[in-house]
């Protein structure tokens, strides 16, 4: 019986086996890159809002403390969005006729809420609490990025679980002194690891990585 396949097909079969493995790896790599990309996480994309509120102006230029508006960040799971009354503390007199601020004045007059677009939308199966992070030396900008340079607000981090765990596994890489938590200009010192280890001990920061820490 004559040979069905010519000798050269050996090469073809070897190449195609390797090719199949390679192709699968490429598909896997592409999928995981897509998942981490800002296209999927929606990070770094400014969100449209009913009023073009600028953190760059209020925080960067005018130097407002985060807590002036986000009043519940130290005491509750939720940082809190300012009520219209808080906007009107200043805007009753400043830019009081600006058409840009018409929705704010309407809200103040009618009592209807302004419908802001949520920028950080964690999945509902994740428990997150601002107050404990702030109390343990996690700075606002550590997660929220350079808020003082955002004209419209965008999400800075991926909010992926691996991103959360990165800090939960090694908090010493990120924590800062408590009196610097609300500083938007704070830069980690060159000896961050040394400082971090000291703070972790001083603040009794635990590396919590059990599932039920966040999925409760």
């Amino acid at each position: 019986m004559p040979q069905i396949f010519h000798r050269s097909t050996n090469t073809i079969s070897r190449v195609s086996i390797f090719g199949a493995v390679f192709a699968l790896a490429v598909v896997g790599w592409a999928l995981s890159s897509l998942d981490r990309s800002s296209y999927a996480t929606r990070a770094n994309t400014p969100r449209e809002q009913p009023v073009a509120f600028s953190h760059a102006h209020h925080v960067g230029d005018e130097g407002f403390d985060c807590r002036y508006c986000h009043t519940s960040v130290e005491t509750s799971s939720f940082a809190g969005l300012p009520s219209t009354e808080i906007c009107m503390n200043c805007h009753s007199q400043i830019w009081a006729d600006s058409p840009e601020l018409a929705p704010v004045r309407d809200s103040f007059r009618t009592g209807q809420s302004i419908r802001w677009t949520r920028v950080h939308d964690l999945p509902d199966f994740v428990y997150f609490n601002h107050s404990i992070h702030v109390k343990q030396g996690v700075g606002c900008t550590t997660c929220h990025g350079p808020v003082d340079k955002m004209p419209l607000t965008w999400q800075h981090a991926s909010l992926h679980m691996e991103w959360c765990l990165d800090c939960h596994r090694q908090p010493e890489r990120y924590v800062r002194p408590r009196d610097q938590v609300f500083s938007v200009t704070y830069q980690p010192p060159p000896d961050q690891l040394e400082l971090g280890r000291k703070l972790v001990k001083e603040y009794n920061i635990q590396s919590l990585t059990s599932c039920s820490t966040c999925h409760r």
Partner: peptide, 21 residues
């Protein structure tokens, strides 16, 4: 479905109440 569960979290709107809160 699990990401967006039919429950209220702080400042999530509501279809049920007239003022949307």
């Amino acid at each position: 479905d699990m990401h967006n569960q039919p429950k209220y979290i702080p400042l999530r709107g509501s279809e049920f109440f007239d003022d949307g809160r």
